[in-house]
Structure formats: C-alpha cells, structure tokens
C-alpha cells in the first residue's frame, strides 16, 4: 500500500533568537517524532547572519539523530547578496536543498531537490516540468483544495508530495517590512523588532477579530491550520509528507500527536482536542482543504467560523 508517511518540520519562519532556535533544534533532534527537518531563513535575508553560524552544528546533531536535513532557501530574492546565499547552497553537492523561489530550482536542476511551498505548483503540468528538472519532493501551496490534491497525487509519479498540516498559514510575501512599519522604523534600520513576536504580530480587524499575523515581510493567518482529521484522506490521495510549521509551543508534543494519528494509534478527533489544549495561541482552521475560505474550520460537512 502507501509507503510510510513522513512527518516533517518546516523551517522556523519567525525571528527567534539564534540560541533559542539552536536549543529548539537540539530538542527536536533528541525528542521529536519527525522524519525530516528543514533549516534556513526563508523570510528575511537580514536575519540570516544570526542563526547561520549555528547551522552546521544543528544540522549535524539532527542528522545524527536520524533526521533528514533539508536546507531551505529564501522565498523572495531581490538582490545579488540574496541570490548568493541560494547559489552557495546549490553549489554544495552534498546538501539537500528546498527551493522556495524558481531561481533555486533552476540552480538545482539536474540533481534531486525539494520544491518549497513558495513556488506555485497548482497543476499537473507544472508538477511534470519541475519533476523533469530533478525535483523529487514538492511541498504544495497551502491554498490547494482537496480536488487539486487528488489530481496532483495521481500525477506525482515517483516524486513525493508534502502538505502543511499544522501551523499558521503562510499567506503572503512582500518587499515591505510590516514589522518595521508598525514600529515606525525603516527597514534598513529595523532593529529586528520582529524578534518580539515569536508567532508573529497579531493583526486584528477594527472590530477586534483576530485576522492575520505579521512576520516582517511575511503575512500569515491568525488561525492555525490543523488537518489531523484529514490525514487519512490525504494519505489515500498520495500525499506522503506532512509538514508542521514551528510555532512557539511544545513542538515535540505537537509532533507526537500527529505521529499518533499517522500511525493509526490515536483517534483524529480526540487528538485534535488534545492539540487544542496544548496550543492555545489561536483557533484551528482547515478551510483551504475543503475548498472554502482558509479561515474557517469545517467539521464533518458543516463548518464553524474560526478566528
């Protein structure tokens, strides 16, 4: 039947202090039931220098613990310096790399690589072109509905498909830094104010409804995507890898809950309830999977507004 499902940990999207991040990964290496760990700065090139020095140490520890380590590239590449960071990753033949911009895919052409969720793969035509270029795993955009996932699952051939099943939804990227804007500082002299918000800065409507979360140049959902109840269906569709985006919660415990459901030990609804107790930063949503607005939580054919 379907090969064993892999649980993956996406790169930390937020600007956590480098030591916090290092310790986080050490604990992941030692305790978390994940198979793949993605490392690297995806959102803002200005942050790269902080965690950069710790990467070799962290990668080695993760590898020793049996995790597949993948190095993620920046998603929005606008200058030579940023391009250079991608080139450096692509030039290291022994590194496994996730391309989050098509330029990364171009540099990695001809050798196995991962296509990240910030590259637009919406259909089988695009999937085929990228697989031809050497992609052996494709992380799909978060807004795809189940109908598209089904088609892509059939079209993937030998390539693995990965989908986010936990965490804030990465909704948008920009050249503009909204953290800097909110703090009334220039992007060039931003004082790294984004560090204050380990899960992003809350953004509410004028009515006080939680709506979005701001992470520097990135905008995420307020709600946390949770596809525990959809895991089995996703596996049947041919999705083999399930991504957890790190939030500032007990990610070892989160991974444990997803592992329990993937292994068929735990009931999805009960697991979701346990996850809800563990993770109280925002309500859950699963609307995109169900072809609805991403903000809603659809439960058994009905839905209730989240947020």
């Amino acid at each position: 039947m379907t090969p064993a499902a892999k649980l993956t940990l996406g790169p930390v999207l937020y600007n956590w202090p480098a030591e916090v991040k290092r310790d986080f990964y050490f604990r992941i290496a030692d305790e978390a039931a994940v198979d793949v760990v993605y490392l690297g700065e995806v959102v803002c090139s200005k942050r790269s220098s902080f965690f950069g020095p710790y990467v070799p140490e962290v990668a080695e520890r993760l590898a020793r613990a049996g995790k597949d380590v993948v190095h993620s590239t920046l998603a929005l590449i606008m200058n030579e310096r940023e391009m250079e960071t991608v080139r450096a990753l692509a030039a290291a033949p022994d590194l496994r790399v996730e391309a989050n911009d098509i330029s990364g895919a171009a540099l990695l052409a001809g050798r196995p690589h991962v296509i990240g969720p910030f590259v637009n793969v919406y259909n089988e035509g695009t999937l085929e072109v990228l697989v031809r270029g050497g992609a052996d795993r494709i992380v799909l955009p978060c807004e795809l509905p189940v109908g598209s996932l089904e088609v892509l699952g059939r079209a993937a051939g030998g390539a693995e498909l990965e989908l986010q099943v936990f965490g804030r939804l990465p909704l948008a990227l920009s050249a503009r830094c909204y953290h800097a804007r909110a703090h009334d500082v220039h992007k060039d002299g931003c004082r790294y104010v984004c560090e204050e918000d380990p899960d992003g800065m809350a953004l509410e409507t004028l009515d006080g409804d939680g709506f979005l979360a701001v992470n520097g140049t990135q905008t995420l959902s307020h709600t946390l995507c949770c596809l525990l109840r959809e895991l089995e269906a996703l596996r049947d569709l041919g999705i083999g890898c399930f991504r957890l985006w790190p939030q500032s919660v007990d990610m070892v415990a989160v991974a444990g809950i997803f592992r329990g459901v993937l292994d068929g030990r735990d009931d999805p609804a009960e697991a979701e309830a346990r996850l809800g107790e563990l993770v109280d930063i925002a309500p859950f949503s699963n609307g995109f999977y169900h072809g609805r607005e991403g903000a809603v939580l659809v439960a058994g054919g009905t839905f209730s507004p989240a947020g």
Partner: peptide
Amino acid sequence: CVMAEGRCALSAYATGRSPNM
C-alpha cells in the same frame, strides 16, 4: 499589490476565492 504578486493568498483566506486560482 503591496504583496509579491502571485504569492498572496490573503483573499483566499478571507473569501475562498484566490487571485492565483
């Protein structure tokens, strides 16, 4: 667009209707 074009699902998040799709 203040967001990078083709890389924004804000509308889809609020309405289920997406610029890309």
